[in-house]
């Protein structure tokens, strides 16, 4: 029996965010916006979903009087991402003829 793919990660935008954050120490909102080419509203919603699940942490601060949002993957997020990749490779290996 296959394990089920984490539904929180099996979404294009949330998976993009997590794949970027796993390679970085932290990333600003504008960087994620640039890389994922998502809309600001959608990116905010998906970031909050990941934050609620404890997969990422979000820090809000100011730089030159402008709000600055910085995101970072949490250990729980790293584990979830690793599990997702592991399950994914099981699926792909099984499908190979």
């Amino acid at each position: 029996m296959f394990k089920e793919l984490d539904p929180l990660l099996h979404s294009q935008l949330r998976l993009s965010i997590m794949s970027l954050l796993i390679s970085l120490e932290s990333a600003e909102f504008s960087y994620l916006l640039e890389q994922t080419r998502a809309s600001k509203g959608n990116l905010s919603i998906q970031l909050n979903k990941l934050k609620e699940a404890g997969y990422i942490s979000i820090r809000k601060s100011f730089r030159n009087n402008y709000p600055l949002t910085t995101c970072k993957i949490t250990p729980k997020g790293v584990k979830a991402f690793e599990n997702y990749v592991e399950t994914l490779s099981e699926y792909i290996n099984k499908k190979k003829p």
């Binding site: 793919l5 099996h10 294009q12 935008l13 794949s19």
Partner: peptide
């Protein structure tokens, strides 16, 4: 809002994003 995508596309997306971050 969210389009369904298969395992291959998922893997491709992970690779692409990790490469972007590394670049």
């Amino acid at each position: 809002m969210e389009e369904p995508f298969n395992e291959q596309e998922s893997l491709q997306l992970i690779r692409e994003m990790i490469d972007n971050a590394k670049a």
